Amino acid sequence: MLPRERTEMLEREILSPYAALSSRSKGRLAPEEQCDIRTDFQRDRDRIIHSKAFRRLKHKTQVFLSPEGDHYRTRLTHTLEVSQIARTIARALRLNEDLTEAIALGHDLGHTPFGHTGEAVLNEICPRGFRHNIQGLRVVEILEKDGKGLNLTWEVRDGILNHTSRDIAATVEGRLVSLADRVAYINHDIDDAIRAGIISVEDLPLNCVDILGDTHSRRINNMITDIIDNSADGCINMSQPVKDAMNQLREFMFGHVYLDPVAKGEEKKAQHVVKELYFYFLKHVDKLPDDMKLLLECTDISDVVCDYVAGMTDTYAIRMYKELFLPESWN
């Protein structure tokens, strides 16, 4: 028996009846010969980790634009925290940990430079609109590997597309990642905001502290424990008190951090950079990289330009803006 076959057998014996089995995946867009060692979901995880889009996450904004401190979260560290939280819950509920990890690692591949600020700008100016989850699916299906895509399984692609609160994933693992995403960003954004001096621990709503805990680790532990205790029969749930406290913390963060002039002090500049880059490349298609030009054979110009700008990191977008629009010193 091959190592992959042994893993698939163990999945059938050990996992919950509600878990997605790698041996019963709905498959890939282009059929492939299976790996002797890894299951299909394990291969998807590895493909995401080795992708260029995944590496770029380390220089993309989470909340604070291009933070100078070494310990602020980026889109990459957020992704890793989501993966850790989701995997912990998946193991406790006997769900497919490999599928969970693959979805978690790929869920934000479609994010723009400057976080949700960049997403809002592209949604405003691109004819097709823009949502990072839809773009994430485009990344793994088309944009990676010079237009070939990663050819991921249906279950992972569904989880990437449907990880936002407005969408519902088809698998339990996908729905778990969606909730783990919220648990991660609310808690680490609080941690970063305290580090930045925008809020203090004492500012947090007292009833939320009483229910969830007074430290970063306690809040995450209590949320994870609550999800495990209240999830059953393929449903991922929180108890009502914990869910209410989490939602109240989210509202608090919008009022005190996400819309705070300190945290968002550079937002208008970031909006300007994204807009100028988009309209520049729309007029100067010849300046696009060769791999993006190849897409012009089958894709509208505005979509290709949107793909290019959306794929930029914060640092690359700023550097490109300087090269295109700011004069250099003359020697």
Rank of each mutant, 00 (worst) to 15 (best):
K145G: 03
K145C: 10
G147W: 07
G147R: 00
K148D: 12
K148P: 03
N151Q: 02
T153P: 00
T153I: 08
W154P: 00
E155G: 07
E155R: 07
V156M: 05
V156I: 07
R157G: 14
R157P: 00
R157Y: 03
R157N: 11
R157F: 01
D158I: 09
G159Q: 05
I160L: 13
I160A: 05
I160V: 09
L161Q: 11
L161R: 11
N162K: 13
H163A: 09
T164W: 01
S165E: 09
S165W: 02
R166D: 14
D167L: 14
I168M: 09
I168N: 03
I168T: 09
I168F: 08
A169I: 07
A170S: 09
T171Y: 05
E173Q: 04
E173T: 12
G174I: 07
G174C: 07
G174K: 04
L176M: 11
V177R: 03
V177N: 03
S178L: 04
S178H: 12
S178Q: 06
L179C: 10
L179G: 00
A180Y: 02
D181F: 04
D181M: 07
D181Q: 04
D181W: 02
A184Y: 00
Y185I: 15
I186L: 06
N187G: 08
N187D: 02
N187I: 10
N187C: 12
D189E: 13
D189S: 14
D189G: 01
I190C: 05
D191P: 00
D191N: 13
D191Y: 08
A193K: 00
A193G: 04
I194Y: 12
I194A: 09
R195C: 07
A196F: 10
G197T: 11
S200W: 10
S200H: 14
E202S: 14
D203S: 15
D203H: 13
D203K: 10
L204M: 10
P205C: 03
L206T: 15
L206K: 15
L206R: 14
N207H: 14
N207Y: 13
C208N: 03
V209G: 03
V209I: 14
G213A: 12
G213P: 01
G213Q: 06
D214Y: 10
T215F: 03
T215D: 08
H216G: 03
H216M: 12
R218S: 13
R218M: 14
R219P: 07
N221H: 11
N221M: 11
N222W: 06
M223P: 01
M223S: 04
I224C: 12
I224E: 13
T225S: 15
I227A: 06
I227N: 05
I227P: 00
I227V: 15
D229W: 00
N230K: 06
S231E: 04
S231H: 04
D233W: 03
D233V: 02
N237T: 08
M238H: 10
S239T: 09
S239Q: 04
Q240F: 03
Q240K: 10
P241R: 09
P241T: 12
P241I: 13
V242Q: 11
V242F: 03
A245H: 04
A245S: 14
A245T: 00
A245N: 09
A245F: 10
